[in-house]
Computed example of a mutant assay.
Amino acid sequence: MKLYSYHRSSAAYRVRIALNLKNISHTLIPVNLLKNEQTQSSYTNKQPQGLVPCLETKDGRLLAQSGAILQY
């Protein structure tokens, strides 16, 4: 799994905590909001809203919004 995240985002922090508590292996992909990386097409193709966090599952599904990710 890949977690697109920003280190100062409280929503992304929640997801990182949950993945670590559940011992779910994942790779952190940093998205620097201060440099507007969330508006680049390489990211908006995955998350059209340009928000973090975004979780890409092993089967290629993309989940946005921390609540939905935590429920998944």
Rank of each mutant, 00 (worst) to 15 (best):
S42A: 05
E56K: 07
S5Q: 08
L70M: 07
I29G: 01
H7I: 15
I69A: 08
G67C: 07
L28D: 02
L3I: 15
L21R: 07
A18F: 09
S5A: 13
S66E: 04
T44K: 13
K35T: 07
I24Q: 01
R14Y: 04
E56T: 00
A11R: 06
R8A: 04
R61H: 12
I69R: 09
M1F: 06
L19K: 05
Y6E: 12
K35W: 12
A12V: 14
R8P: 04
L63S: 12
A11G: 06
Q38A: 03
L70N: 00
Q47M: 12
R8K: 07
Y72C: 02
Y13K: 03
N20A: 14
Q49F: 10
E37K: 06
S25P: 05
Y13R: 14
L34A: 04
C54I: 09
N45Q: 01
Y6P: 12
K22S: 06
P30V: 04
H26D: 03
L28S: 10
E56D: 09
P48H: 13
T27A: 11
L33G: 10
N32G: 02
H26Q: 13
Q40G: 12
L62E: 05
E56Y: 09
I29S: 10
L55V: 01
A64P: 00
V31E: 00
N36V: 14
V52G: 13
S9I: 03
T44H: 08
Q47K: 05
A64V: 14
S10A: 05
E37Q: 04
A18D: 07
I29M: 02
N36D: 14
Y72D: 02
Y4V: 15
L63V: 15
H7Q: 08
R16F: 04
K2M: 01
G60C: 06
S66Q: 10
I69D: 08
K22N: 05
V15C: 12
A12C: 09
L63Q: 13
T57V: 05
L34W: 09
K2D: 00
N23F: 03
L70A: 04
A11P: 00
S42E: 02
P30A: 15
Y13N: 05
V52R: 04
L55P: 01
S5P: 00
S5M: 12
R16V: 00
G60A: 08
Q47Y: 07
S10P: 02
V52F: 04
Y72N: 10
Q47T: 10
L70Q: 07
T57W: 00
T57I: 11
Q47N: 14
A64T: 15
T27S: 10
Q38G: 05
K58T: 08
L33A: 04
T27Q: 15
P48A: 13
A12Q: 10
N32S: 05
K2C: 00
N23A: 02
M1H: 04
V15T: 09
A12R: 03
V15Q: 06
Q38E: 06
R8Y: 01
K22H: 01
